Computed example of a mutant assay.
Amino acid sequence: MMSKQVNTITVRQTQFKPENINAHYTESTLMSHFLTALSMSFPQGERFFVETVRNVRDQVSDEQLQKDISGFIGQEAHHARAHEQFNQLVQNSEYHLKKFEKAYEQEMIRLRGLSQRRQLAATVALEHFTAMMAGYMLKYPDVMFKGLSENMKNLWLWHAVEEIEHKHVAFDVYQQVFDNLAQRRRSMRTITLGFISSTVIMTSHLVWQDRKSTLYQPRQFIKNAKTLVGLTQMMWRLLPDYLAFYKASFHPSEIDQQDLLSKARELLVN
């Protein structure tokens, strides 16, 4: 199945500037830790996504999809570098991510040992997660981005826009090369368990490292309780889009995010 709508994929340089970053860069410390946990997975994860598409690119005959693949690779390469810089800058001797970097290295080794079909199916599932969350960030910026500096907004807004722009690419490659519905569904079930559990574990670990500010400050406790409610609400709101993935006829473009994308692109320019 090919893309149902044409979506421009633009490879941009991020306006995010590597600089000293406090571990508390949103109004809620819990939201900071949650976003940092997501960021931890991006450098290695997005390089893996690129590999899985490149592995089978020579089997793609569609000319437009070949152009989209180039855009996908360019965007993901920039994302990996930017989040690598962020991850290095946000940590210090009392707030560190090294344990998870090693865990992700081991997980990437495991994934690279799978067949090309299973590797690409994992990418397709994870790209669905990132597109859903990117859309949510753009739709509810007051929930996800409250208190962010302009520099940090540049990082997350830029990333969200590009994730939506290329959300169909890995899916279309998978459909053209493998077109295996059972594998797509199996991989989504496996990825769902791994993605949610790893994000919860990483966020919890960061919260515990920062417990003096996150758990023991009354003002932050109230803000973080609201954040927890907001994240739970996010999961329920995204559930229909998540379940849609299991339909035989599903295509990423059926989740319409074009209005959100248009407005966010304007913010990127300004």
Results as ranks from 00 to 15, higher is better:
1 M>H: 14
6 V>M: 14
7 N>I: 15
10 T>H: 14
10 T>Q: 15
12 R>D: 03
12 R>C: 03
15 Q>N: 14
16 F>M: 05
17 K>G: 12
19 E>R: 08
20 N>V: 13
23 A>K: 08
23 A>F: 07
24 H>E: 13
25 Y>A: 09
25 Y>S: 03
25 Y>W: 14
26 T>Q: 00
26 T>A: 05
29 T>F: 11
31 M>L: 08
31 M>D: 06
34 F>T: 00
36 T>C: 04
37 A>L: 02
40 M>T: 06
42 F>K: 03
44 Q>R: 12
47 R>T: 08
47 R>N: 09
48 F>Q: 01
50 V>L: 01
51 E>P: 05
51 E>R: 11
52 T>E: 04
53 V>P: 02
54 R>D: 11
54 R>N: 12
58 D>L: 10
58 D>A: 11
58 D>Y: 13
67 K>D: 13
68 D>M: 03
72 F>W: 09
73 I>C: 07
75 Q>V: 01
80 A>Y: 03
81 R>L: 09
83 H>P: 03
84 E>A: 09
84 E>G: 09
88 Q>A: 15
91 Q>V: 04
92 N>P: 02
92 N>D: 07
93 S>Q: 14
94 E>K: 13
95 Y>A: 11
96 H>A: 13
100 F>C: 05
100 F>N: 04
101 E>D: 14
102 K>Y: 13
109 I>R: 15
110 R>L: 08
111 L>Q: 02
111 L>G: 00
111 L>S: 01
113 G>Q: 05
115 S>P: 03
115 S>K: 04
116 Q>I: 04
117 R>D: 07
118 R>I: 13
121 A>E: 05
121 A>T: 02
121 A>H: 05
124 V>F: 10
125 A>F: 03
125 A>V: 01
126 L>N: 02
126 L>A: 05
128 H>N: 04
129 F>G: 00
131 A>P: 01
136 Y>N: 05
141 P>Q: 03
145 F>I: 05
146 K>W: 07
147 G>R: 03
149 S>M: 07
151 N>H: 06
156 W>E: 00
156 W>L: 05
158 W>A: 04
159 H>Q: 13
159 H>E: 10
162 E>I: 07
162 E>F: 10
164 I>A: 08
165 E>R: 01
165 E>A: 07
167 K>S: 04
169 V>C: 03
170 A>M: 01
171 F>S: 00
171 F>W: 01
174 Y>T: 02
174 Y>N: 02
175 Q>G: 06
176 Q>T: 10
177 V>C: 05
178 F>M: 02
181 L>M: 12
184 R>T: 00
186 R>A: 11
186 R>G: 04
187 S>M: 06
195 F>S: 06
198 S>R: 12
198 S>T: 12
200 V>F: 11
204 S>C: 09
206 L>I: 04
206 L>D: 01
208 W>F: 12
210 D>V: 06
210 D>S: 11
212 K>G: 12
213 S>H: 10
214 T>I: 07
218 P>K: 03
219 R>I: 14
220 Q>F: 04
221 F>M: 09
225 A>S: 10
226 K>C: 07
227 T>L: 09
227 T>S: 10
228 L>P: 06
229 V>Q: 15
230 G>E: 06
232 T>P: 10
232 T>Q: 15
232 T>N: 15
233 Q>S: 09
235 M>S: 15
239 L>D: 09
240 P>Q: 10
243 L>T: 11
245 F>Y: 07
248 A>Y: 11
252 P>A: 10
255 I>G: 00
256 D>E: 07
257 Q>W: 03
258 Q>N: 14
260 L>D: 04
